[in-house]
């Protein structure tokens, strides 16, 4: 069975200790969960929780950007054409306003590659 690249990267990112495509450090989801402290004021993660200032992030890895129902995205995000995978999330989390100029996510970004990988690994665990 053919596995899509997106799903494959999500799975890889979710596996602690496994090198990811040789270009990003392996993410540790447990550390990522701690780092999520800086996200939680705007983002809920439980599949049943409502959107708040930002959209609910359950199932974000593998999802099309700006597509969750019931959340008013910026025009920039809605029109970005992005699909959230390890690579696009890494770029976005480095500096959201560079990756998607016009985003209304007021977040300076995560400078350390390892911390981004940890965060992405955690995001990949957010499944209903």
């Amino acid at each position: 069975m053919k596995m899509s690249w997106i799903l494959a990267s999500a799975l890889v990112a979710a596996t602690p200790g496994m090198a990811w495509a040789g270009e990003a450090p392996a993410g540790n989801a447990a550390v990522g969960q701690k780092l999520f402290i800086q996200c939680r004021a705007c983002h809920t993660v439980d599949g049943t929780a409502a959107h708040t200032i930002g959209p609910n992030l359950n199932g974000v890895v593998g999802a099309r950007a700006g597509a969750r129902k019931g959340y008013a995205y910026s025009q920039a995000m809605a029109a970005s054409g992005l699909v959230w995978n390890a690579k696009t999330l890494d770029r976005f989390l480095t500096r959201p306003s560079t990756a998607v100029p016009g985003t209304k996510m007021a977040f300076a970004g995560i400078a350390a590659p390892k911390a981004r990988a940890d965060m992405i690994a955690y995001l990949a665990t957010l499944r209903r």
Binding site: R40, A41, C42, T52, I53, G54, A106
Partner: peptide, 9 residues
């Protein structure tokens, strides 16, 4: 303000 996410939280 409505965008004061951390304060509101």
């Amino acid at each position: 303000g409505r965008s004061y996410a951390r304060v509101i939280k």
